[in-house]
Design a protein around this nucleic acid. Structure first.
Length: 215
DNA sequence: TAGGCCATCTGGTCCT
DNA sequence: AGGACCAGATGGCCTA
């Protein structure tokens, strides 16, 4: 295979002069430094090329679907990201990692809120439910409980949160909104979630998802 | 200019 | 066997 030959979109080179590329279709095909692809069965070069195009196309589609899902997640995160006082460029969308971490924190927050709600209900009804377990997955059924522009976190929750390590200020934005500052996201889940670049990764035990691969 | 973020290509592995 | 999934590599764009 010629590594400089675009394999993907028949008739649409990625980065050739004279072609208008999409916003992200701006670079030449990657020249693989891996060993040459081993011949797939007994395919002739043309068939291998077609196969590679097909595989690339599938992979691109898969990643695009993933991005669609990520955008859907960002949409419900809009209230968190649209604060003009944020050091982020106004209107700049959340990065993928930010979106995921923020979503995770929000799920944790909901769990905390649910627990608190149960505790209060228990106090009212006299039934002890404080030890009721919090559902690990609150979103079963696919219903994301955020209404656009409806802020579910209170300023009190933030103010009482505190920093996990004392280094990272908890953001208590006005009007109860959650401000997203890169590397410093306040959180109300027991004050134990600090997402600054220093400590956000070691506040949680990372689930050691075993790789499927024995590399 | 460095670093973050991203899209894409690619080969390996697992699943159906 | 083919598709899905994953991770490494690469290079472009953008911002501080």
């Amino acid at each position: 295979m010629n590594p400089l030959t675009p394999l993907d979109i028949p008739g649409v080179p990625h980065c050739s002069p004279g072609f208008s590329l999409g916003p992200r279709m701006h670079h030449a095909p990657v020249v693989s430094l891996h060993r040459p692809a081993k011949p797939h069965r007994d395919l002739n070069p043309q068939e291998q090329l077609e196969l590679r195009r097909k595989i690339n196309s599938r992979e691109r589609k898969r990643m695009q679907d993933l991005n669609v899902a990520m955008d859907a997640l960002r949409e419900v995160m809009v209230p968190y990201a649209s604060n003009p006082t944020s050091s982020q460029t106004p209107g700049r969308r959340l990065s993928k990692i930010s979106t995921l971490v923020l979503a995770r924190n929000y799920i944790l927050l909901l769990g905390s809120s649910l627990q608190e709600m149960r505790r209060l209900l228990g106090e009212v009804s006299g039934v002890g439910v404080t030890s009721a377990p919090v559902p690990r997955l609150l979103l079963a059924g696919g219903c994301w409980p955020v209404v656009s522009n409806q802020i579910l976190l209170t300023q009190e929750a933030f103010s009482s949160g505190g920093s996990a390590n004392g280094k990272c200020p908890v953001i208590a934005p006005p009007s109860g909104q959650v401000e997203v500052v890169p590397g410093h996201w306040g959180n109300a889940v027991g004050g134990n979630v600090c997402l600054c670049g220093v400590c956000r990764l070691n506040r949680f035990g990372h689930a050691t998802t075993p790789t499927r691969f024995s590399k």
